[in-house]
Amino acid sequence: QWKVGDKCSAIWSEDGCIYPATIASIDFKRETCVVVYTGYGNREEQNLSDLLSPICE
């Protein structure tokens, strides 16, 4: 189960590419979260089910 502060990978809606991110907040009722893309600072809402394991850098 994901928690705030977890590192993950998420698909950015603008280009469909996968980027490393950190979970900033979680809404368990809606099963969504807000991620912050590492190195970019962009925030975006994602479905918890769409999150991927962190990418090894």
Rank of each mutant, 00 (worst) to 15 (best):
V35A: 02
E45V: 12
L51F: 03
T32D: 02
Y37F: 15
V4S: 06
V36C: 01
V35R: 02
K29S: 12
D50N: 06
S53H: 08
V35C: 06
A21R: 06
L51R: 03
Y19Q: 02
E57T: 15
R43M: 14
I18N: 01
E31Q: 15
S13K: 13
L48Y: 04
I18V: 11
N47A: 10
W2D: 14
Y40A: 04
Q46V: 11
D27G: 02
T38V: 10
G5S: 04
K3G: 14
I26P: 05
I23L: 02
D15V: 05
N47M: 07
S25G: 03
V35G: 01
E44C: 06
T22G: 03
I26E: 02
P54G: 08
G5Q: 02
G16R: 04
Y37L: 01
D50M: 08
V36E: 12
K3E: 14
V34G: 00
T22V: 14
I55Q: 12
C17I: 06
Y40L: 14
L48N: 05
P54D: 07
L51Q: 04
E57G: 13
E45L: 09
Q46D: 03
S13Y: 08
V34Q: 01
W2M: 13
A10V: 13
C56F: 14
E44W: 08
S25D: 05
E14V: 15
S25A: 08
Y19N: 02
P54C: 11
P20V: 11
V4W: 06
V35P: 00
I23A: 04
V36S: 01
Q1R: 14
S13T: 08
Q1P: 07
G16E: 02
G41H: 07
D6W: 11
S9V: 08
G16V: 06
S13A: 08
T38E: 13
I11Y: 08
V36D: 00
C8M: 00
N42F: 15
E44H: 05
C33V: 11
A24F: 14
D15I: 04
R43S: 14
N42E: 04
G5V: 03
S13H: 07
T32P: 05
I55W: 12
R30A: 12
E45Y: 05
A10R: 03
S53E: 14
W12R: 10
D6T: 00
V34W: 11
A24Y: 14
Y40F: 14
I11A: 05
Y37Q: 00
P54K: 08
I18T: 02
I11T: 06
K3M: 12
Q46K: 15
Y40T: 15
G16Q: 03
T22K: 05
G16M: 06
G5P: 06
W2S: 14
F28I: 11
K7E: 12
I11C: 01
V4Y: 09
G39M: 11
Q1L: 03
S53Q: 14
D6K: 00
W2E: 14
C8T: 00
N42C: 13
R43C: 13
K29P: 05
P54T: 08
A21L: 06
V36L: 07
T32L: 06
I23W: 04
D15G: 06
A24M: 14
L48S: 01
N42Q: 10
Q1N: 13
Y40C: 14
C8L: 00
L51Y: 03
N47Q: 10
I55E: 11
S49R: 13
V35I: 12
F28S: 09
G5A: 04
C8A: 00
L48A: 03
G41T: 06
E31W: 12
L52S: 02
Y40H: 15
R43N: 02
V35F: 06
G5C: 12
K7I: 11
P20D: 12
K3V: 12
C33M: 05
Y37H: 00
C33Q: 00
I18C: 15
C17F: 11
S53N: 09
S25P: 03
I18K: 01
D6G: 00
I26R: 01
G39S: 07
S49D: 06
E14N: 08
S13F: 05
N42G: 09
V34P: 02
E57L: 12
D6L: 09
